[in-house]
Computed example of a mutant assay.
Amino acid sequence: MTILLDTGALQTLQELLGDDLLDITQIYADQVQADVQGILACWASADTAQLGKLAHALKGGSSNMGATEVARLAALLEKAAVGQDSATITSVLDALPGAATQTVLALREGGYLRA
């Protein structure tokens, strides 16, 4: 089973930030879908350099949010972009949109997003 969220990290953030965490997770939830679409557009236009940069940013943002699966996929994607590994890029891009959507749902279900 894939672990989407590091709930321990999110609980620590909630203890530190209180209700401000809800604002931050909402920004992440809004941005992650846009980031995935940007990555897909880069792949469609064969811009692996930009794809790697976007994957790097997604990896960092997702790691900060405890979005472990999206961060893992973004790390694989970044490495594959640098190495021009088309097979891995294609494989990761098959999984990334669904992982991003499921992560946002898990944030909502965990009470980390406003209703």
Rank of each mutant, 00 (worst) to 15 (best):
T2L: 09
L4Y: 03
T7K: 15
G8N: 10
G8D: 10
Q14T: 12
L16C: 09
G18C: 09
L21S: 04
L21F: 06
L22C: 05
D23K: 13
I24M: 15
T25P: 02
T25L: 01
Q26W: 02
I27F: 10
D30S: 10
Q31R: 15
Q31T: 14
Q33Y: 08
Q33L: 15
Q33C: 13
D35R: 15
V36W: 01
Q37K: 15
I39K: 03
A44H: 10
A44T: 11
A46L: 10
A46I: 08
A49G: 14
H56D: 07
A57Y: 10
G61A: 05
S63R: 11
S63W: 11
M65E: 02
M65G: 04
M65K: 04
T68P: 00
V70T: 11
A71D: 07
A74G: 04
A74Q: 00
A75E: 15
L76Q: 14
L77D: 04
E78T: 07
K79L: 13
A81C: 07
G83R: 12
Q84T: 09
I89R: 01
T90S: 13
T90W: 06
D94V: 13
A95I: 03
A100Y: 00
T101L: 10
L105D: 15
A106Q: 00
E109I: 08
E109W: 06
G110N: 04
G110W: 03
G111L: 08
Y112M: 09
Y112A: 03
L113H: 07
